[in-house]
Design a protein around this nucleic acid. Structure first.
Lengths: 330, 330
DNA sequence: ACTAACAATTGAAACGTTTAAACCTAAATA
DNA sequence: TATTTAGGTTTAAACGTTTCAATTGTTAGT
């Protein structure tokens, strides 16, 4: 009834547990075929599956990688996680957790306690360098999905938010807008900080006025709720900090009778799947999800294999995708 | 350098490892305050975190629950997972994996090997009753997110697809449509089987013609690709097996100049967040995600605590949400 | 026949915890 | 004074593996 252990297999096969272990782990070059057969047969008969705890206790290593994202409700992160999952080597598995800023540090500890070998962090930590240092000291690999210069103790992969913010700005400038709103969270994460800073900087250079409208978070609902606040600024274009927000904003704008893009242009960020399908199709800044996910996975795996290599950083371009939600200022 | 063990804490504090263990696990009623302080201080100094493998090996129990969903790219599942995550008791964690039909069985084994205590399965298994039996024999709790009558060895939670399919049909019938298309996957899962069967049954009763258009999968892209095939049927309404498909279909229809809902009505399934924000806002069948996620979590936890109780089933209603993507047959 | 080499298998220690039981000391009771 | 009680702490076994060194047969070489 209780799960079968290696001992049950050994007894049934009439061999020692050492034999069972070696045969089942493919170290069985030296064992006779007869023995191997007996072991496999016994394994199948009792339905033996190695106890993961015991194995990783002995081996001193799990084969789990933790992934920490803010929310799986945002398809951007769903996509990242999905892609990492798909690219996973056979013997390793992902432990996915979600945590907003407030609980991110604590969730990292949960992951560590669960025995992960490495962590990919997309959530905003309270103090990334400190967490990175602590993890490194404990021999756990960490790669962050952000551009943080002071992060000496963690590998990083990101697409340039500085570039993305600027491209969004330049697009709006090129369309002739003179007053835009920056729609975003008030609890800035580092990525968003770069994104907004570069946007504002570019706008300042061009002499375009930017009004800021804060939101509670970066969801569609928050975007919709902000529509009125955006409209009273009398700006002619808006930069939403992500696509979710943009979609919500457009929906809200629509509800109060403001047409996008004729009366107001909206540009998003991320280029999630939905951007293309939404109507008006979203003009947005593309983050190369596929590359980000793949690099993050590669980097963390590599760091686990070789803890003391040089710090690695993979930076990708953020690209403007022009669709229907932006138009020239008439 | 290597991670600190309980022994390091004990040495530094000048006590035995038993003391450390007991104090740190709150069994320390009998220990003097002085000792407790020393232990805590030592723990903090060396940065000790209990080794999860060793702990669960000894305790004979992990605190991990596996979740198996088809894809995190579909916000329906993202939402379910997110909600389970949010409702999680403090000491337990979720191990989320994705697997389409082909690999679902194997992924269950991966989860088992990782030491989960229970599994919530939303993916389609090759042979659910067999998997359920096998898991039960090994003392692992399982709850399936589907309505499967022969599943004696697993708890289940679902919203009635039979009801949902019928409600979708009735809505279209009430609007006066005489020829509709059923847009869906050719690899039917059990849930979808009920969904389509009841839809077709209701349509047959009402004497409405239904044309079937198969898709490769249930994604937005598949929906868009099917637009032409749908249009050539000359049906006046379509039932898409989920919202993703519906969104894709509408987008595709639009691209070939067919207006929704004036020229064709489209109804989806799931009522994901996007249904409400999409334009035209999606008429769809709501699945009570919150209830489903919560019940699934409760049930699996309960089953872990008490493996030999009566089989539990939680069934919810599926509700029609009328928005803008359906209109009377003109 | 005697050793050497080899093939096949096993004994036993170790991984880091938890926990029941045992132990020690000092104070309380008889 | 002898004995119990209680408080405070430790000993040691166990959990299920993996793995190195040791052991047993066998066969080959001289």
């Amino acid at each position: 009834m209780g799960k079968a252990s290696i001992r049950d297999v050994a007894n049934l096969a009439g061999v020692s547990i050492a034999t069972v272990s070696q045969v089942l782990n493919g170290k069985g070059e030296r064992f006779s075929d007869a023995t191997k057969q007996k072991v496999f047969a016994a394994r199948d008969e009792v339905g033996y599956v190695p106890n993961a705890s015991a194995r990783s206790l002995k081996r001193g290593t799990t084969t789990m990688i933790g992934v920490l994202v803010p929310s799986l409700r945002n398809p951007y992160f769903g996509d990242i996680v999905q892609r990492m999952q798909e690219g996973l080597p056979d013997n390793v598995s992902l432990s996915i957790m979600t945590a907003e800023t407030a609980t991110a540090d604590q969730t990292v500890e949960t992951l560590v306690a669960a025995g992960v070998q490495g962590i990919v962090v997309a959530s905003q930590l309270s103090n990334p360098p400190a967490v990175a240092r602590s993890l490194k000291r404990r021999g756990i690999a960490m790669v962050v999905l952000e551009n943080h210069d002071e992060l000496e103790d963690a590998d990083a992969v990101y697409s340039s938010d500085t570039q993305g913010g600027r491209k969004a700005a330049e697009h709006l400038i090129a369309l002739g807008h003179k007053h835009v709103v920056l729609l975003g969270n008030q609890v800035y994460t580092d990525n968003l900080l770069y994104r907004t800073a570069s946007f504002k900087e570019a706008m300042a250079e061009a002499g375009v006025k930017v009004s800021e409208v804060a939101t509670r978070n970066l969801t569609k609902h928050a975007g919709r709720a902000a529509a009125m606040a955006v409209s009273v600024t009398h700006a002619t274009a808006a930069f939403a900090l992500n696509d979710e927000l943009a979609i919500g904003l457009i929906s809200g704008l629509n509800a109060i009778g403001i047409k996008v893009p004729t009366e107001m242009s909206v540009i998003g960020y991320d280029d999630t799947d939905y951007a293309e399908f939404f109507r008006p199709a979203l003009t947005t800044i593309e983050q190369p999800v596929w590359d980000i996910a793949k690099s993050a996975l590669d980097l963390v795996l590599q760091r686990i294999a070789q803890p003391d290599g040089e710090r690695q950083v993979a930076a990708f371009d953020a690209n403007l995708i022009v669709r229907e939600s932006t138009a020239p200022f008439a």
